[in-house]
Structures are given as structure tokens and as C-alpha cells.
């Protein structure tokens, strides 16, 4: 059977790993290539790299960072952040990404999801969704949480599935960087709404949180802070998940 995946996330800006809380207050968290190699050797199932560059100048370093990560990385690499077109995606894929994640640009131009699917296949097309809890529903927010869209997360997930997405990276903006645990009700509602694999993101502090998210319906769990800060290793977390009865790839 398919295993549940544990996916460290590198937020990268100008060639360095950074980490913030609710997408703000970024601080330096090391070299992305060293981090990628370490996570892969510890048993990470995939890696996500999000380009959180604030300026075009910083963004210029992205392809170089991807190339350097690819050289050492023997697991799948998803890259997102600022992807607005098929040609943006192609640049990232040529540099060494295996999948490309789109977020704000897909909300502005949903056809982009279909264009990516046609150009590179569903297996390459990840739609990242940032969700904010409202009274009884979740709203899609874009541009690093600064723009409310009025879109209902659950409806948006069904739409991107029919548009050609292959996978969903679902981040709870409310939980991002807080270590309060993933948003379980959001994950349960999302996995009811789509057959696509869902990568849970935002709020992880422990293997218990991860097991909860997987039991709520996620196919994979993404985390940044706990791995960057050295509070847990990927290997420890996967061993703990295995002891909780979750099927993971131990290596």
C-alpha cells in the first residue's frame, strides 16, 4: 500500500532558508542545499521548496538554488512561489524541480492549472491553497495571506481538481508557524471534497499532530519549523508515526 509521506518544507529567499510565523517576521534558518541533503538522508519522502522572495532580484537566485538542491537530492522536489505562467513553471522544471506549485496566480487565472496539466501532466501540477478559518467556512487567501478572495476553500478544491490539478498543498494560515497542530476540521472537509492527495501544512509540532492530520484524511504532512529548529528529525517523526500504526517508509 501507499505510505503516508513526511515532507519538510524549505521557505527560500535569496538563496537562504527562512522561517516566519503566519508568513511574517522571516528569520534565517540555514543553507537550503545542506538542509535538503540532511532531510533526504533522514528519510524525507519529498521536499517542498517555496520561493518567498520579496523582490525580482532575490527571485533571480531561485533557479541556481534548485540546481544545487537537485544535484544532491534523490527524492521528489516540488517548487512553488511566484509561478504565474507555463514558462515560469518550465524554468523551474528545467532547473530540477519535479513538480510545480501554483497559488495566487491560479486564483487570478484558473486556466493556468489546465495549461500546466496540458504542458507537463497532472503529476507535475500542484495547487497550493492558503486557508483562513471564518465563521463556519474557510476562505482562500493569496499573496502571503494579505489578500482575501471571497473564495470558499472547499469549492475551490473541487474546481482545481476538475481543472487538472494532481495534488493539493493545503496550508492553514491560522496555524502556520504556531505549532498548535494542523487544522483537523479543514483537512477532514477538504478530503471529503476531493479525491486528490492532500498535503497538510501549517501548525505541526509533533508526530501526534501529524498522525491526527493523516487520520483526518491527508496523504502527506508538511512541516518546517520543527525540522529547521532541530526539535525533531524526520527519522524520529517517522519512527513515531510507525509506532502509532501509520504506514511510512522507514529507511
Amino acid at each position: 500500500m501507499l505510505t503516508s509521506r513526511v515532507i519538510p518544507c524549505l521557505d527560500v529567499r535569496n538563496g537562504r532558508v527562512v522561517k516566519g510565523v503566519q508568513f511574517q517576521g522571516l528569520r534565517d534558518a540555514g543553507c537550503p542545499v545542506e538542509a535538503a541533503a540532511r532531510y533526504a538522508s533522514e528519510g524525507a519522502d519529498e521536499l517542498v521548496m517555496l520561493d518567498v522572495s520579496a523582490t525580482l532580484e532575490e527571485r533571480g537566485a531561485t533557479e541556481d538554488t534548485i540546481e544545487r538542491i537537485r544535484a544532491v537530492l534523490d527524492i521528489p522536489l516540488t517548487v512553488g512561489g511566484g509561478v504565474k505562467s507555463v514558462s515560469d513553471a518550465r524554468r523551474l522544471l528545467n532547473a530540477g524541480a519535479d513538480k510545480v506549485a501554483v497559488n495566487s496566480a491560479a486564483v487570478l487565472n484558473p486556466k493556468l492549472v489546465t495549461e500546466l496539466q496540458c504542458a507537463f501532466g497532472r503529476q507535475c501540477t500542484v495547487v497550493a491553497v492558503d486557508a483562513v478559518g471564518r465563521d463556519g467556512w474557510w476562505e482562500v487567501v493569496t499573496r502571503s495571506g494579505t489578500t482575501a478572495t471571497g473564495l470558499d476553500v472547499i469549492r475551490w478544491l473541487s474546481e482545481v481538481e476538475s481543472l487538472g490539478a494532481g495534488e493539493i498543498l493545503l496550508t492553514s494560515w491560522d496555524r502556520d508557524g504556531t505549532r498548535d497542530g494542523y487544522d483537523g476540521p479543514l483537512l477532514a472537509a477538504a478530503s471529503e471534497a476531493t479525491l486528490l492527495p492532500i498535503i497538510a501544512s501549517g501548525g505541526a509540532d509533533s508526530a501526534t499532530h501529524m498522525a491526527d492530520a493523516l487520520l483526518a484524511g491527508a496523504s502527506a504532512v508538511l512541516a518546517a519549523s520543527i525540522f529547521h529548529d532541530g526539535d525533531a528529525t524526520v527519522r524520529q517523526v517517522k519512527t513515531d508515526l510507525s509506532e502509532k500504526g501509520i504506514t511510512v517508509r522507514l529507511c
Binding site: 500500500m1 501507499l2 505510505t3 509521506r5 519522502d45 497532472r122 503529476q123 494532481g166 495534488e167 479525491l195 486528490l196 492527495p197 496523504s219 502527506a220 517508509r249
Partner: peptide, 10 residues
């Protein structure tokens, strides 16, 4: 089963 199959399998 969900299709495509995405991920690690034995």
C-alpha cells in the same frame, strides 16, 4: 483506489 497513484509503495 485513488488515481493517479502518487507516492512511495513497496
Amino acid at each position: 483506489v485513488a488515481s493517479p497513484q502518487f507516492g512511495w509503495n513497496w
